[in-house]
Design a protein around this nucleic acid. Structure first.
Lengths: 151, 151
DNA sequence: CTCAATTACTTTGATAATCAAATTATATTT
DNA sequence: AAATATAATTTGATTATCAAAGTAATTGAG
């Protein structure tokens, strides 16, 4: 089998399964009241002190209306706090509660495990190459598809 | 930033971008009446003569009820045909129409192009490293999460 | 300085994808 | 023959999403 076919085959299978696995890991853990989407919002808000709604909406690529309802739910569940900015009262700032930060860390651990196993059996030289390769591919996509006004 | 963090960050972004790109390519192409989900059902039915509903539902990891409605829509749109099996009249067999096969091929081509353009700028050494990493990730999922009967 | 335009967010009304549970029809087993 | 199991569909609900309309606050042009 050619390299191309191998890569294609693995990628297809990975893509088909990765969200599913992530979701199921979530559902058997401590934070099973979170959907995968909600966890990704939490991941995006991150541990930084505060973020605006619009920055977060842009980053997770949903409309602000969608984010509003997502945040409503995360607040109900106790993962996020919301307050109006005093400098500009149109702006709403959100941040993780203590429980939100715990969820963040749990999700981070999942990713760490994944990356650790991705990198095992690689020499440090190969790690360097990998980073170059991934950066390269990443740039390629953001370049190639920027022109269409997507990014 | 450690290698692990860098790799994680890029992988997460790549994953998000690729899904996004796939969706947007679909929407500007010939088969824009298909959602990404529907395209993946078509992909799964494939070019083989016929499949049962239950096999397909299992393969795409949805309940049979979900698949029934998905197939209803694909039939309305002219991509799939459905008939009752004559050997066992409980069983429903589905297959792609000619238009369904065209959509299948178009999706296949999209994947090929994506992989080709991602790989064409890599040296053969770099390709090897990439394949090793993808294989590791794939094994991480199929090994570690097999026990739960997920994979 | 004021009011028109812009910005940040929320609300509303709609759709798609999904599930679990109930239902229907057919096959299999006892 | 009756009970059980299987394959698919239907039903009733939930979640995620968007576009467009609405609200409140700020900015900028005259």
């Amino acid at each position: 089998m050619s390299n191309h076919e191998t890569v294609n085959e693995i990628l297809v299978r990975l893509f088909a399964n990765i969200l599913d696995i992530e979701e199921k890991c979530l559902k058997i853990g401590e934070f099973s009241d979170l959907s995968i989407t909600e966890m990704h919002v939490i991941d995006n808000i991150g541990l930084t002190s505060e973020r605006t709604m619009s920055d977060t909406a842009k980053a997770v690529k949903v409309t602000s209306g969608t984010l509003t309802t997502a945040i409503d739910n995360l607040i109900k569940k106790g993962y996020v706090e919301r307050r109006r900015s005093s400098e500009d009262r149109r702006v709403v700032k959100i941040r993780l509660t203590e429980r939100g930060r715990e969820a963040y860390k749990s999700h981070e651990d999942f990713h760490k495990d994944l990356v650790t196993s991705a990198l095992e059996r690689l020499s440090s030289h190969e790690e360097e190459v990998l980073i170059k390769v991934l950066t390269n591919i990443d740039e390629f996509f953001s370049e190639k598809y920027k022109h269409a006004g997507w990014y």
